[in-house]
Design a binder for these strands. Structure first.
Lengths: 231, 231
DNA sequence: AGCTAACCTAAAGAATACCTAAAGAATGGC
DNA sequence: GCCATTCTTTAGGTATTCTTTAGGTTAGCT
């Protein structure tokens, strides 16, 4: 079983190192960065399963970083803050944080939250399920090749699944039908790239949680399509 | 969608023109130069998405030009040569060329290489080189193709987005409507350049943070327009 | 102030891109 | 070899976006 990877973003070195120590003791793989800019790089390169983010950073606002992290990853995000004002709590959660811990906190509490969030994201507990992707009401399991909305399994065809997986693995990135076609059908495939369009259309119908619910796959007219994490 | 711009550097006029002809037929925007010195200028001014470079040039060695081009741009570089010696091939790729075609070549092969390299560049390049552009209350994300003012997303059309992106990427530089037209619509496009003007007008309305707020896009009477970073 | 040239913008027509349903082609299981 | 499923192509309808036009506005000059 692969160790869950956790990214810690905190400018206060002592606190960051303390958190790291506890996480390591629990058996996680940890990386620590001390500012927002390197955080974004680390999120891309390290591909963490969970992120612990301090709201007070020197170079950028934590919420700002949060928004930008959300565009890079779907890993659960745990906010850390000195302020326990309600306003911040609400704001933090709406911009994409999954949980919120206020300083001062007990290490035990933090560990519990980490564990809970990893479990909810279905990482760490089961074998090889660290590959599970989830967003909103949608859960994709590349290993068992299944997709569910609100825990109801969907019957996707092979191409539909590939297409969805690719888009979810690159959230908020726009791809033209040509790009998608060559990416999924092979570099040298020739054929009508409009076939991508048909699959997207069918896919949308299937993954739609409810009529009128915002589309997961957004059309960017004149450019292409993207899986958006801001509905 | 913006036409990809391709810079062709070859001293043999007939060959250069033949390549140009085929590229134009594929829908690319093309500029041709016949020697190494003007190539460097063109690379800076034209900002091509891909460069085709003949290894045998009158005034400078192609590999030499290649090295210097690499300092100016990250666009994929396609080497062209009569010699199909292995040594050259290896050397060409190590100094920064992305692909290598030996003369005589079929136009189809060259077009296929061009296409493949452009695609590869767009896929790989997006994740790291493109950054979030921000100025004042305006934020532009080229990857997700979104623009926001004060964190409120704007609904821009494809052309509006292209235009804004270009201006923001060249801050404080004045461009005539002709220049903008040829840049965004393609080198050889014909049509009324006043259409640019209409897009600028629509754009201003959309990106305006508040009534009476200074315009991001300034008119330079008799000259053109610029995106100004001093409001 | 009046004139002119340059610029702006609203609006209408033309062009384009997109969506969807449905039919035909390919694939894979029995 | 046949049937069921999935994939691809096609085509028509629709909505959006682009371009053009034309009249109004502004800025700069004499």
């Amino acid at each position: 079983m692969q160790k869950p990877r956790i990214l810690v973003i905190d400018d206060e070195v002592e606190i960051a190192n303390l958190i790291e120590k506890y996480l390591l003791r629990e058996g996680y793989s940890v990386r620590v960065v001390y500012n927002g800019n390197t955080a974004l790089e680390a999120a891309q390169e390290y591909e963490p399963h969970l992120i612990i983010l301090d709201i007070l950073l020197p170079d950028a606002n934590g919420i700002d970083i949060c928004i930008r992290l959300r565009q890079l990853t779907t890993a659960p995000l745990l906010f850390l803050s000195c302020k326990d004002e309600e306003a911040d709590k609400v704001l933090g959660l709406t911009v994409g944080a999954d949980d919120y811990v206020t300083k001062p906190f007990s290490p035990g509490e933090l560990m519990a939250r980490v564990k809970a969030n990893l479990r909810r994201a279905q990482i760490g507990g089961q074998s090889r399920s660290d590959e599970l992707l989830r967003f909103d009401r949608l859960v994709i399991n590349p290993i068992s090749h299944t997709v569910s909305v609100d825990d109801v399994n969907l019957e996707l065809t092979a191409k539909e699944f590939e297409l969805l997986l690719f888009l979810v693995q690159h959230p908020n990135q726009v791809f033209s039908t040509e790009h998608l076609f060559h990416r999924l059908w092979g570099e040298h495939s020739l054929g009508d790239t409009r076939t991508v369009l048909v699959h997207i259309s069918n896919l949308r119908k299937k993954i739609q949680p409810a009529p009128g619910y915002p589309e997961y796959i957004a059309t960017v007219r004149g450019i292409g399509y993207k899986f958006r994490t801001q509905l």
